[in-house]
Design a protein around this nucleic acid. Structure first.
Lengths: 203, 203, 203, 203
DNA sequence: CATGAATGAGAGTTCATTCAT
DNA sequence: GATGAATGAACTCTCATTCAT
């Protein structure tokens, strides 16, 4: 078992190495701009070596999507610590946007990129995403249960808040805010978040 | 003149053919995923023929973007007919979302696709977009002037509403609403629009 | 006959137009760098029109080679005016080098470029070249007859002088004189010509 | 070490294969007339393979030029053994011409072919050429110092001799001696060399 | 386990050339 | 007589991928 597990561990480390490099490169040059060769060079292995760990390029893609989903979950999870559902919801939103701003490529991967036909592999990723989304909806539900809103249409409330957050992040990371001077964008996003919170309060 | 105009027309038809094919392909596979060859095959011409009508790949892209911007403006413009700014704003929002739903590829092109560094050529397109955006902001301003909102932060109000609308459309057209059954999605979008309108009223 | 000859004349003018443009372009961008399209644009006709006057690209090439040969002959011919064979020879040499310096592309065409298999067409050109060369050899012979040299090996004398002149011109136009500062090259060439003349005197 | 060196050797052999094919093609069709595909076909490999050994087309060109320069130096160097500067000079000239006749493609590459703007890479080649040229000029200078010529214009003497040698070789290898029967050409060249030597003696 | 070597396929683009009008 | 439209073939170069070692 010792040997087997060490091998397992080494294999895992190698996958890590590949994914980290891939992720960094995707960040820099976009998904289409990165080649297997680029990744191989980045980790100082030969291109052929990559294929020992991932069947093909799209498997790397799926693995990354899973990574992204996990990272996102980890980024959002601390919101669960807030006992008050309303505070929890706010924190969740703040963290959601923060995640998108800090990891634009991951966000892109999860919510914008048109994926190359989702095979079975990324079902795990999908489950993760579902779970995180469920946590979000439950939080909204908790607010509803706590009579925080006049409206009781949990589904629509959750969806509406999501639309706003997603719109905010994706306009930003796909560079559609050029009519606003660069240095004002972050602040505008911040003000908009505060505003939607206010708006939600009077729902 | 007869011959000239027929030739002109035929040339125009060919450009149409190219643009339509290109548009469909761009949306399916993204800008980088589409090759001149692909487009040529789609319209059953040789690759070289494309170059008789468009200088290079990005010129096709710019032509499409310009068309999309013009179509969008035409789609939104009727909102200007409403005299009451608040009604005008609502109509504008409704039409914005409607445009995105009806012409997902055009919306994609304008607000989602990662473009090849926009050179001077598509300034026209850019101006068009700016103008339409300005109309939107002015409408919000008119509402503010009419004391429709408690808040007077026009910029943030406009931006927040835009975020919601863009988020709604882009989650839809980039298929990130799979957790909702297909037949419910349109209705959910509708309810969300109504909700944001309500929320805005109490701004 | 009037109509026919006018048509003939017009056809000739068009050929002139094409050749002149081609020549200018070859000068600027080299033979390989020029396309039929380039030539067509230069004379503001369509590429297809060129084909009404020349069967294909290499026919233009051959026509140009003939042009070059004729131009060269015209450039050298005035040397014939000198009655003294020695003066005639010197003048011939001077003019030969002058031609190469003033029309590097023509010289290139005639003496350096590896031609695309010489078909029957450029036989005319070949004859012209032969004739000019014969004139040169005859001049040398005249010097020999006039006991200008001790040596009587006309063939070798002519060939040796030609080698020098050709070497001088071709090192210059194929840019192999970079070890000499640009501004000194012309003068060096001049001094070398004077030197070979001197050397020939003591042959 | 065995394996490594064998691999090294194989790699070197492949480069040889490419360079040999390229050299032959360049000389037949000129630099612009040769495509990577041509070279690949000649050695019966795929075009992509070429890129494993040379970054691009001009790197092949530079590699060849460097080789040619080195070979030429090696061919000329033995002349240095002659102590008497005049004998040294004669031997140098003889070897220069001999090199051109024996390796027409290399000579072509070095002194005739129109090269793709030489970047920094082939500086080595350039230096080699400069050095060999310097050796030549020094030899002429030594003759001058030894009062071998009446003229003391070393630069012009060297240049004039070079012109003759270059003209002789390049008329030959670019096939501009067709007016002389094939079997007489070599002898004519020989006689011309002897003649220029004589002429130089009386300088 | 890792890789060097190789390649087919395909990218954008340009070219000489043809042909119906 | 002139041309607009079209194309097959070629260009340089990169990519994902395979396979023998």
């Amino acid at each position: 078992m010792g040997i087997t597990s060490r091998k397992e561990r080494e294999k895992e480390e190698m996958r890590r190495l590949i994914l980290d490099a891939a992720l960094r490169l995707f960040r820099e040059k976009g998904f289409d701009g990165v080649s297997i060769r680029n990744i191989a060079e980045a980790i100082e292995y030969s291109p052929a070596t990559i294929y020992l760990y991932y069947k093909d390029k799209s498997e790397i893609y799926f693995a990354l999507q899973f990574e992204a989903a996990a990272l996102k979950r980890d980024h959002l999870l601390p919101a669960a610590a807030f006992e008050d559902p309303w505070q929890r919801l706010i924190e969740f939103g703040r963290r959601y946007i923060d995640f998108g701003m800090k990891h634009p490529d991951l966000y892109d991967l999860l919510f914008i990129i048109r994926s190359p036909m989702e095979s079975i592999e990324n079902q795990d990723c999908w489950k993760l995403g579902i779970a995180t989304h469920a946590f979000f909806v439950e939080t909204v539900q908790a607010c509803v249960d706590a009579r925080h809103f006049k409206s009781t249409d949990t589904e629509t409330i959750a969806y509406t808040l999501w639309c706003h957050a997603h719109g905010l992040v994706s306009l930003f990371i796909r560079e559609r805010m050029r009519m606003y001077p660069e240095e004002k964008r972050a602040e505008l996003a911040k003000r908009s978040f505060d505003m939607i919170v206010k708006m939600a309060e009077s729902l």
